[in-house]
């Protein structure tokens, strides 16, 4: 199962990277959010999936799953949620102010 999740994470990285390298601002933001999802999946996969019971009070099992990776993922999701939201607002403002979402047209001078 870990292998499978890792492959999915790899696929997400690939698509994310492809989208980030494109010119449209919305595509870039979508690429970023796919990339972060890939990271979160990877974070879960490399630390092992479901090695024991849920780490909750009252669950009577001998082995508990390590809750820390999940806590890390939650934190990371919150942060990437804020970042994606910020970049969406930024992209929208750029579109409103400058009338384009094409990065090619945002260049400062031709030699840049």
């Amino acid at each position: 199962m870990e292998t499978f999740i890792t492959i999915i994470a790899g696929v997400l990285f690939t698509i994310g990277t492809y989208l980030i390298l494109s010119k449209g601002l919305v595509r870039i933001i979508l690429g970023i959010s796919l990339f972060t999802h890939g990271v979160h999946l990877l974070l879960m996969a490399v630390n092992g999936l479901k090695k024991g019971g849920a780490p909750l009070l009252g669950e009577a099992t001998d082995v508990y799953t390590d809750p820390l990776p999940q806590a890390l993922i939650l934190t990371s999701i919150v942060i990437s949620f804020a970042l994606t939201a910020f970049s969406l607002v930024l992209g929208y403002r750029t579109y409103v102010e400058l009338g384009t979402d094409d990065l090619e047209q945002l260049k400062g001078d031709p030699n840049e």
């Binding site: 970023i32 400058l98 260049k107």
Partner: peptide, 10 residues
Amino acid sequence: QLRETIKYVV
């Protein structure tokens, strides 16, 4: 500002 912010953020 907007252009540089986009680059910086990404």
